[in-house]
Design a protein around this nucleic acid. Structure first.
Length: 434
RNA sequence: GGAGAGGUCGCCUAGUGGCCUAGGGCGCCGCACUGGAAAUGCGGUAUGGGGCAACCCAUCGGGGGUUCAAAUCCCCCCCUCUCCGCCA
């Protein structure tokens, strides 16, 4: 990810303030401006020298064609001029490489400024935009709700122990109705997205190359987050965002072709190094999980409205599942480096009595698109401009499953199946094995 | 995995060190001709960077090298196709 040089030059104050709001040093902005000036100067000098060298070489060709001796004095003089320019170019290129490297490194540290109305601060500044549904209580009048892992183990839907045996902790095994529930959710989510939401379904590779990992910023920003296959220089995807956004890397959308909206299911692999303990009981935080992700490519002017629409696509799923949830507008230091605006969807899990993040919907502005060179031609024949990219979960499965298990469990130990999933599961109620 | 053939402008293609500052065709855009169109003719049709501009620079799958000069020669890598092997 990086900030655009044009934007840096045109609104340095906004960029500087944006960096401060996200907890970065403002001084890097000024240093970057300085280096940018030096770089442009070097480029101009280098280009002039290249022009000189090119014309000298061209004249050698012409002279030889017109009968000059290739080893004669005229040609020798031209050769000398050309070599000399070449030597100076090499020197300038050396300095340019140094300046460019420092500049690139600085640019990587300048965050995408948040939208003006995003609250400034950390977690305490997050804003609850809206809440839907009634929160169930753990303590019912005549019984107590169990946490999801107990519900699931008792119903034979989940086997964490054997998952740990065959792979490691954080790799859950779903079985029976538990496995079917995974499949049902994925299928239903995609049906909604490709149907009423008009998205195109993508079924991408779950493993990507280094260029793709770099495109969405997993390298170098979040390299420790990913599982790596070093022998083949490949990376297991931490989210479908990576392969799906990279679909259009180095491409130009022709006029009239936007928006392009995708929905994609992939398994997601995250190392989650250092995350262990009570907060991660059950399937709240695992190394492999399933997720349907929505990825949008929009015209710049449309991205803000598209984010509201995108967030609503996630909310609709929760409402139809009958799960209480809230929408958070994340504050500047919570939203991350690359987002201009970000909403989190949190579902209520009555068994553990916690809000669980099941979706994160972000507008990246042109920040991602710049790194991947994804552009759009506003009019036929016009100069391409960077597109705006957005993505949002719709939805991540494990915590959605946890909320379903905890919300729909019954006093007798059975589980009522949410109505929208009954056609997929073929039953309205799951009973404990006899 | 082995052998061979390829990767050039949106698409097809020419191109074996300097008239390549990449030619031609198709498609597309504009203009002319037409009542309107077809056909035809003329012109234009990549991306990024720099410059007020004329214009300049970079890019022929990617990277490195040889040379005054590389689409062209050399090395490494990637991808596609054909055949063989293996295989859910």
């Amino acid at each position: 990810m990086s900030i655009g040089l044009t934007r840096l030059r045109e609104e340095p104050d906004r960029v500087r303030q944006g960096a401060i709001d996200k907890g970065e040093e403002a001084a890097i902005v000024d240093r970057a401006l300085e280096l940018d000036g030096r770089r442009r100067q070097l480029l101009a000098e280098g280009d002039a020298l290249r022009a000189e060298r090119n014309s000298a070489s061209r004249r050698i060709g012409e002279a030889v064609r017109e009968g000059a001796r290739p080893d004669g004095p005229e040609v020798a003089a031209l050769k000398r001029a050309s070599s000399e320019a070449g030597a100076r170019i090499a020197a300038l290129d050396g300095e340019l490489a140094t300046v460019g490297a420092e500049l690139d490194e600085l640019l990587l540290r300048i965050p995408n400024p948040a939208d003006p109305d995003v609250p400034v601060g950390g977690e305490e500044a997050n804003e609850v935009v809206r809440t839907w549904g009634d929160r169930l209580r753990r303590e019912e009048p005549t019984w107590t709700r169990r946490p999801h892992w107990e519900v699931a183990e008792r119903l034979g839907m989940l086997d964490l122990e054997r998952g740990a045996k065959i792979t490691g902790s954080g790799f859950p095994v779903y079985r029976g109705h538990g496995a079917a529930l995974q499949r049902a959710l994925i299928d239903w989510f995609l049906a909604v997205h490709t149907g009423e939401n008009g998205m195109t379904e993508i079924w991408p590779p779950a493993v990507v190359n280094a260029a793709s990992a770099r495109g969405t910023g997993q390298i170098p920003d979040k390299e420790e987050l990913m599982y790596v296959v070093p022998r083949d220089d490949l990376y297991l995807v931490p989210t479908a965002e990576v392969p799906v956004t990279n679909l259009h890397r180095d491409e130009i959308f022709e006029a009239g072709s936007l928006p392009v909206r995708y929905a994609a299911y992939t398994p997601c692999f995250r190392r989650e190094a250092g995350a262990a303990g009570k907060e991660t009981r059950g399937i709240l935080r695992v190394h492999q999980f399933d997720k349907v992700e929505m990825v949008l490519f929009e015209q710049p002017a449309d991205s803000r409205a598209a984010l509201e629409w995108l967030t609503e696509r996630g909310e609709i799923l929760l409402r139809r599942l009958g799960l209480a949830y809230r929408v958070l507008l994340l504050a500047t230091r919570e939203m991350g480096f690359v987002q201009a605006r970000k909403y989190d969807l949190e579902v209520w899990a009555p068994g553990v009595e916690r809000w669980l993040e099941v979706s994160s919907c972000s507008d990246f502005g042109d920040y991602q698109a710049r790194r991947m060179a994804i552009r759009y031609r506003p009019e036929p024949g016009a100069k391409p401009v960077l597109v705006h990219t957005l993505n949002g979960s719709g939805l991540a499965l494990p915590r959605t499953v946890a909320a379903i298990l905890e919300s729909y469990q019954q006093a007798d130990g059975s589980l009522v199946v949410p109505e929208v999933l009954r056609p997929y599961l073929g039953t309205a109620r799951i009973e404990p094995p006899a």
